[in-house]
Structure formats: structure tokens, C-alpha cells
Design a protein around this nucleic acid. Structure first.
Lengths: 165, 165
DNA sequence: TGTGCGCCTTCCCATCATGGGAAGGTCAAC
DNA sequence: GTTGACCTTCCCATGATGGGAAGGCGCACA
């Protein structure tokens, strides 16, 4: 009795690759699958359901450790929806933070690209923007810098200020 | 002659960690630094300038391999700004693509979270959303599924359709 | 001159999620 | 029985960064 599938079928049905199913099992994200005499893993619909849950959580960008918590909440009939919601809101914050960061980088770069003619000449505000303060070629003071003549005489080398880095 | 600094000073001046400077050198992103007799690396303002360039490119999200190209264009007086601009625009596309993806995930999750009471009760649309199609418990047909009685007799197991995955 | 401390060196390991591939065993259809 | 798709485990790779160990160097201060 029981409907059973091997890892490839479970992979197809859940959308999680066989490779990843084995991995999730190895890190304890999902329970160890039953084995046939041959050593093949067996999956039933409940297993596949759990794997699908994991896949959807990943599709929403949840890191595996948070999915571990989600799985725990999922299987806990006494959980409060507040716990789940808090987890989700935290994750939403992180997603939007990352999205903002990426968009900000794109915007800065767009600003440079807009100023670039994009023609055959070498002049390019994008490169100049990356250079940003131009070469501090001949440094004004010896602050953090030392001078040396060829390879002889190594004079004082660094300000002795402690805890520099 | 020559203003020279060790790797820690170059790290401070460029904003690239000493660890990363060594790494960039090891993968050939930046040229090998000169060495003192002691084995310490030496950096001059040009080196620091290049490292700063790399750091700004990284701050704009460029992957190292693209930075490698950027460095090549930077040092090439015959480059056309069109080349640089094309590289930048490609990168902007990728950044915005990723930002959209993240924001999309956040929006989906926000929709679920908005539907969640977030109270002390277990009912939670977020969890349900992750379950998505509910358990395909007793599968309708034997498509991809097999039945088994306990652990005896393993009948036909899989449709022989080739190139399944 | 010695000592101490902070810096340097190399090398290995960890992250995070995923995949590639090798070597070898299993299964089922023809 | 052979074939070919599937399964098993194990190791390595990605991309960018960091942690940390073990040991050497540099320099200021006592």
C-alpha cells in the first residue's frame, strides 16, 4: 500500500532537483527518506508536499535556515500566525533592502552612462566615475606614506598610532 | 624616490581589504606587487589608484570578471567610450533584473502577509500560500506513481518515456 | 640590546545554494 | 541478456569574502 516514487520522480513532482533533495536530506532540512532494499530512496506524497513547500519558500527567496523554521511552524498545530507573519515580514524587509541596494547601484551607473557619449572616442565619464578622485599621484604629506630611494635605507615607515586596523 | 606603502596601508587607502588585495593578485585581476627583501608587498600610488578603481567597480556591483575587462579598457588609450558604455548598460540591465526579481518576491510575500491576521491563532495564509496546491495526497492516476504493498512485489515503476529530465 | 606588539607572509577552511561529473550499482523493457 | 536510464556516494566548482593558524618581519621604546 502507499504511493511511492523514486527521487527523480519526486524531483519532477516537487520541482526540487534530485541533487538538492539529497542535499536537503543531508543537512537535515527534510527527514531522511525511506530506502528500498536496493538503497534507492522512496518518496510518498507527503514527502513531495514538503519538498514543494521548500521549493516555494526558496522561490520567495527564503534562505534555507529560515525555511527550516518555516517547516517547523508548518508542522506545529499550536503555532500562532503571528510567528509566521513576523518571519515573513523580516524576510520582506531583507528582500526590499537588497532590491533597493541593487537599484541604487543601477541608478548611479545609469547616471554615469547617461553622461557617456558612447561613440568611438576614448573619453568616457563612466571610467572617470570609477576613478573617482583621480590619482593622488605625488602625495602631499608623508601621512601613511614613506619614501624610499631605490632599495636602500628604509627610514621610518608608519605612524605608530596603535590599533590602526 | 617613490612613495611606497605596505599592504595594510594600501588597504586603508584603497578601501580594499588586505585579504582581498592578495586575492585579486592571486587571480591576476591586479598585477603582482613588488616585494621588499623581506617578502612584504610594496604598493605605490598607481597601485592604490587601481585598487580604488576596483573597489568602486565592486561597489557598483560589477563582478570581478567584468572588472577585469573594465581595467583593460581603463588602461587602453585606444578604447572607444562605446565599449565601456555597452559594458555598463549590460550591467545595469542585470542589476535591474535582479532588483525586480527581489521586489517581486517581496510583493508576493507581502500579499500573503497582508492576508494574515498575525494573531495567536494557528490559521495562516502565509503557510497556506507556501503549500500552494495542497497535498496531491491520493494521486488520481498512476502517472509517475506506483503503488506498493508494504515491501513486497515491486511492479511496473515508471513510464518508459525517454529523456525524462 | 632586547623585548614586545603589530604587521606581514602563506595556507586551509567556511560561507550559500547549486550543479557537474566520476565510478559503480539497479531496474525494467526489449 | 543487453541496453540505457536511473540510482548511489563522493569530490570539486562556483563568487566574493572572511576567519584563523603558524611563523617571520619591523620598529619603537625601555
Amino acid at each position: 500500500m502507499g504511493i511511492v516514487m523514486n527521487i527523480g520522480q519526486a524531483a519532477d513532482a516537487s520541482g526540487v532537483s534530485a541533487k538538492m533533495i539529497r542535499h536537503y536530506e543531508s543537512i537535515g532540512l527534510v527527514p531522511q527518506a525511506d530506502r528500498r532494499d536496493s538503497g534507492y530512496r522512496d518518496y510518498d506524497p507527503e514527502d513531495v508536499h514538503r519538498l514543494s513547500f521548500v521549493r516555494r519558500a526558496r522561490d520567495l527567496g527564503f534562505p534555507l535556515e529560515r525555511i527550516r523554521v518555516l517547516l517547523g511552524l508548518w508542522g506545529d498545530p499550536t503555532r500562532s500566525s503571528a510567528e509566521v507573519k513576523a518571519l515573513a515580514l523580516t524576510h520582506i524587509e531583507e528582500l526590499e533592502e537588497k532590491a533597493r541596494h541593487l537599484q541604487e547601484m543601477a541608478d548611479v551607473l545609469r547616471g554615469l552612462a547617461d553622461a557617456c557619449d558612447g561613440d568611438g572616442r576614448p573619453h568616457c565619464p563612466i571610467i572617470e566615475g570609477l576613478e573617482a578622485g583621480s590619482v593622488p599621484a605625488s602625495s602631499p604629506s608623508g601621512e601613511r606614506l614613506i619614501s624610499r630611494s631605490s632599495s636602500t635605507s628604509l627610514p621610518s615607515r608608519r605612524s605608530p598610532s596603535p590599533g590602526r586596523r
